[in-house]
Nucleic acid binder design. Structure first.
Lengths: 138, 138
DNA sequence: TATTGTTATACTCTATAACTATA
DNA sequence: TATAGTTATAGAGTATAACAATA
C-alpha cells in the first residue's frame, strides 16, 4: 500500500502527533496540556494581560479560552481581577503557586524540546523551526 | 503581547490551518475533505485494497474510517465487495463515477499545491516537505 | 454603536470497548 | 485464538450566535 507522502497537511499532522505525544509524556504528571502551558507562559511574560490578548496570541476563540482560563483559576495557578482602566476586562496574573509551578513547567518543557531534537535530529529541528516561523506569522 | 514562536507544536498547527484553509477553498465545491481525498487517492492507486490497509496508511482508527468509507459508498464514488480470498474483508475500488471524479480532484489538488508554493515560497515548501518526510515516516 | 467576557451549543477529529463474522 | 469490519460512545478541539456589562 502506497502512502500519502506528497500531502503536506498529512505530514504536518503526523509530526504534530509526534510532538504531542512527547509533550504529553513530559507534562502529564503536571496535568498540563499544550494550551494550558501556552496560557501560563503568556501570562507569566505579560502580567495583567487580558483574555482578548491571549485569544489573539493563541489564535483561539474567546469562548474556548474562557473555559481554559477557568480551569487554571480553579486550580489556583492564575487569578483574575477587574482592570481598573477598563472594568470590562479581566487582568490576569500568576498566583504565588502559579509562579512556583512555572519552574516545574519549564523543566518539563526543556526535557520535551531535548527529546524532540533527539527524535528529529537537531539539524532537522532547527530547519523546521526556521521554515515554519515565517508562514505561521503571516 | 509576546507570541509562542518557540513552540514547535504551535507552529505546526498554525501552518496546518493555512494548508487546510487552502485545501478547503479548492475542494469545497466538490464537497471533499482532506481525509476523503486521501481515501479516494489510495483506493485509486491500490484497487481492491481493504479497509485495514487504508487505516494503516492513513493512521486512522478503524471505526472512524468505516464512517468515512460509508460516506463515499453512499455518494457512489467507491464500491465494496467481499474479498473472495478472505470473506471478512471488504475489497474497495472506485466506481466509474469515482474514476471520473478523480480528474476533478487532481485538478483541485494541483491548484491547491500551487497556492501553497505561492504562499510559502517554493523553497520553503520544498524544505518543509523534505524535512517532514523523515520524522513522519518513523 | 463597539468591545470584553460569558453561556450555550454544535460540528469535527480522535479514541476505546464490545460485538459479528470469518479465519 | 486472532483478525476485518462494525456499532456505540466519549473526549478533545474548534466554530458561531446571542447575551450582559462596560466603553
Amino acid at each position: 500500500m502506497s502512502s500519502i507522502t506528497s500531502a503536506l497537511g498529512f505530514q504536518l499532522r503526523m509530526l504534530d502527533q509526534l510532538v504531542q505525544r512527547s509533550f504529553q509524556a513530559h507534562f502529564q504528571a503536571l496535568e498540563i496540556t499544550p494550551t494550558l502551558y501556552a496560557i501560563l507562559t503568556l501570562i507569566d511574560a505579560n502580567p495583567l494581560c487580558r483574555q482578548t490578548d491571549l485569544s489573539n496570541a493563541l489564535k483561539m476563540h474567546q469562548p474556548n479560552l474562557v473555559e481554559r482560563v477557568g480551569v487554571l483559576i480553579d486550580r489556583g495557578l492564575i487569578a483574575a481581577r477587574a482592570d481598573p482602566n477598563d472594568r470590562r476586562a479581566n487582568a490576569l496574573q500568576l498566583t504565588f503557586a502559579g509562579t512556583h509551578f512555572m519552574d516545574k513547567l519549564n523543566e518539563a518543557h526543556d526535557a520535551h524540546i531535548a527529546e524532540m531534537k533527539s527524535l528529529l535530529g537537531a539539524d532537522v529541528y532547527d530547519t523546521l523551526m526556521a521554515n515554519l516561523a515565517a508562514p505561521a506569522a503571516g
